[in-house]
Nucleic acid binder design. Structure first.
Lengths: 336, 336
DNA sequence: GTGAAAGCGCTAACAG
DNA sequence: CTGTTAGCGCTTTCAC
C-alpha cells in the first residue's frame, strides 16, 4: 500500500488531498492540511522521490561533470555548487570526467543519457561535439563554467583579458624580461584556458613592443608542476627572468617554492603573478587575479534554475561572465 | 506509452520480454534478444531509472557525505569513490556536510531520509546518534571512512598507531624536544582524528620518559593553519623545538614554509614529520606516513557493494583497517 | 475544496 | 522461453 495512502486514511481524506496538502500544490483547506501534516508526522511519512519523478518528470537532482576534484578552483566550485543547489532543494550527482576514453563515454551514454537529472552543469570540461549533442538532446538546461559550450549558457571569466591584465601589471612595474609559465596546449583537459591565457600574455607583450619568442614554458597545472618548471627555469642565473606570469596560482606557488629553494628572493629578485585567488597566495606573497570560483558557481546554479522555472526567461540563454578584478594580494616589485 | 512498449512492439514481443532482453535478467532466446536490442538501438531507447527503481527498490546510486572537498585527503577519497562506484554502475550524490546546523539537519531529514540511495558512505564525519539512527533506519548498508560509526562497517587507518610511529621515528633519531601540532579538540568536524593522533604522540613520549606538558599546540588543519602555528612556534629561537610531529601533512607543510620564512633550515635545523602522503611532501622534503585515501575509498566501496549483493556476507560487518606504512619520503635528521 | 480514477515506465509473478 | 497481469507510490485531470 502506498505510503501516502496510509497518511490519507489516517487523516480521513483521499490520497489526492493528502498529496496536495503535503506538496503544497493545489487547494486544500487550512484545517485539512493541518490534519494531513499531523498524520504524516505521526507515521513518519517520507515521500518517494522516485514515484513523484515518474509522474512529474522532475527529479530535483542535477548532474555535475568536472575534470578534477583536488585542484583548488574545482573543489571550490564544487562546494559552492552543492551549497547553492541544496538550498534550492536539488541534490548533486558528481561525475569526475576522465580524458576521452571508454569510461568517459560510459558516463555520457549510460549515466547522463537517462532522464535522471533536471539539468546538467559542466565545469571546465572541453566537451566533444557528440557529447554536447547528447546533452542537448536531453532537453534539459545545460550550463557551463569555465568555457563556452555551443548552445548553452556559460559562466566564465575573461581569460584573455585576465592574462593581459596580469602581464601589463608586470610591464607597468618596469619589467621587460617576463616569462609565461602555463598549461600545455596539448592538454585537452583544461578547456581553452591554456591557449587563452597565453594569448593574453602575447598580446600584452606585443603591445609593449617586446618579443615573445621563447617566453612561454609549459608545465603541469599544479604546484609540483610549477616547482619543476621553476627549478629548470631559474637554475641558470644568467638566463633568469625578472618576472613571471603564471597561468594559475598553483603554478605560481610552485615557481616561488623552487625560487626559494634556489636562494632567490621573492618578490625582490623575482616578481610572480598568477590567476585564481588561491588561499595560499598570501603565505607566498603572491600577486594574483581573482577568478571567483564561488561566484561563478552561484551564477551557474542561478542560471540553471532560472531555466527550470516555469516562466523561464529566454534572455538568460546568453553568455555571462563573472567579474575579473586585479587584486594585489601582496607586493610585486620593479626589476633591480 | 511507455518507451519499452515501443521497443517491444517494434521487435514483435511483449514488454516483459523486451525488459528481460534489455536488462539481462531472465531467460530470452538469443534470437529474440538480438531483435529487441536492435529495435531499442533503432529508436534510441533509454530506460527510465525512475520507473525501474520504483519497482525494484534499487536506485543504482549511493549517497556520500563528507565535511570537506578541498582538503587533499577528502578530495582524493572522493575521486576514488566516484571511480570505484562508477565502475560498478553506481553514481554518487554528494553532500558536503556543514557543522551541526539547520542545513545539516535538512540534508539528513530531507535528502538522505528518502529512499534515494542503495547505500551511504560517510567520510570523516562525526555523526550524532540521531544521524546514525536515521541512516540505519533506512535499512541500507552504511559504510564509514575515517572513524567508527556504531553498527556500521568502517575503514580507517590506526590513527593512534600512526601518530605513535611518527613520534617514535623522531625519538629514534635522538630528538627529545619534540612538539605536536594538530587539530583543535573542540573542532567537531574531524572525527576523533585529532584526539587519536594526540594520544599516539603522548604515548610515545611517555614511553620514552619525556614530559608532554606544553608539547601540543592546536591549529587549523590546513597549510595556512600550519603556517600561522609555525610563525608563532619558531619565532623565538631559544624556545624552538628540534622536531615537530604534525597531525597532517598540510599542517606540516605550513610549518616548513613558516620555518623557511624565518630562515630555519629544514630538515637540518628542524625535523618535521606528518601523516597523509600528500603529493607536495617531496617538494618540501617532508617525511610522512601514508594514509592511503584511495585504498580506503576502494575498500569502502567494495564493502558497500558486498552488502548489497544478494549473497551478502555477514562477516564483512566487522571493522576493517587499511595498512599503515611508515614511508620515508625524504630525510629527517638528528638534532644538532 | 475534495474524491475517484487514470496513469507515469518499468519489472515480477505466474501461467502457458 | 514468452505473454499476461499486476502493481511500485505518487500526482493529476476531472467531476462533484
Amino acid at each position: 500500500m502506498s505510503a501516502i495512502a496510509d497518511v490519507a486514511r489516517l487523516a480521513g481524506v483521499a490520497k489526492a488531498t493528502a498529496s496536495r496538502a503535503l506538496s503544497g500544490r493545489g487547494y486544500v483547506s487550512e484545517e485539512t492540511r493541518r490534519r494531513v501534516v499531523e498524520a504524516a508526522a505521526r507515521i513518519g511519512y517520507v515521500a518517494s522521490p522516485n514515484a513523484a519523478s515518474l509522474v512529474t518528470g522532475r527529479t530535483q537532482s542535477v548532474g555535475v561533470i568536472i575534470p578534477f576534484i583536488s585542484r583548488w578552483f574545482f573543489a571550490e566550485v564544487l562546494e559552492s555548487l552543492e551549497q547553492a543547489l541544496l538550498a534550492q532543494g536539488y541534490d548533486m550527482t558528481l561525475y569526475n570526467l576522465p580524458a576521452v576514453s571508454d569510461e568517459r563515454e560510459r558516463i555520457f551514454d549510460f549515466f547522463l543519457a537517462r532522464k535522471r537529472f533536471d539539468g546538467v552543469i559542466s565545469v571546465g570540461v572541453e566537451l566533444t561535439d557528440a557529447e554536447v549533442d547528447l546533452l542537448h538532446r536531453l532537453g534539459r538546461p545545460l550550463v557551463g563554467i569555465g568555457g563556452d559550450i555551443p548552445g548553452a549558457r556559460t559562466i566564465a571569466i575573461d581569460d584573455v583579458g585576465a592574462a593581459r591584465l596580469a602581464t601589463e601589471h608586470l610591464l607597468s612595474l618596469g619589467h621587460t624580461d617576463i616569462r609565461h609559465i602555463g598549461g600545455d596546449q596539448a592538454d585537452q583537459m583544461d578547456f581553452a584556458v591554456h591557449t587563452q591565457r597565453l594569448t593574453g600574455f602575447n598580446r600584452a607583450m606585443q603591445a609593449a613592443g617586446l618579443p615573445i619568442d621563447g617566453c612561454f614554458t609549459p608545465c603541469a597545472f599544479t604546484i609540483p608542476g610549477g616547482y619543476e618548471a621553476g627549478l629548470a627555469l631559474f637554475g641558470d642565473p644568467r638566463r633568469r627572468p625578472t618576472a613571471v606570469f603564471a597561468a594559475s596560482d598553483e603554478i605560481a606557488i610552485g615557481l616561488i617554492i623552487a625560487a626559494r629553494d634556489l636562494g632567490i628572493q621573492v618578490p625582490s629578485e623575482l616578481s610572480v603573478i598568477g590567476i585564481d585567488g588561491h588561499p595560499y597566495a598570501e603565505m607566498f606573497r603572491l600577486t594574483t587575479i581573482e577568478q571567483h570560483p564561488r561566484n561563478q558557481a552561484r551564477m551557474a546554479v542561478e542560471s540553471l534554475l532560472a531555466a527550470l522555472a516555469p516562466d523561464a526567461d529566454p534572455a538568460m540563454l546568453g553568455l555571462r561572465r563573472a567579474p575579473t578584478n586585479l587584486v594585489m594580494r601582496s607586493s610585486t616589485s620593479a626589476p633591480r
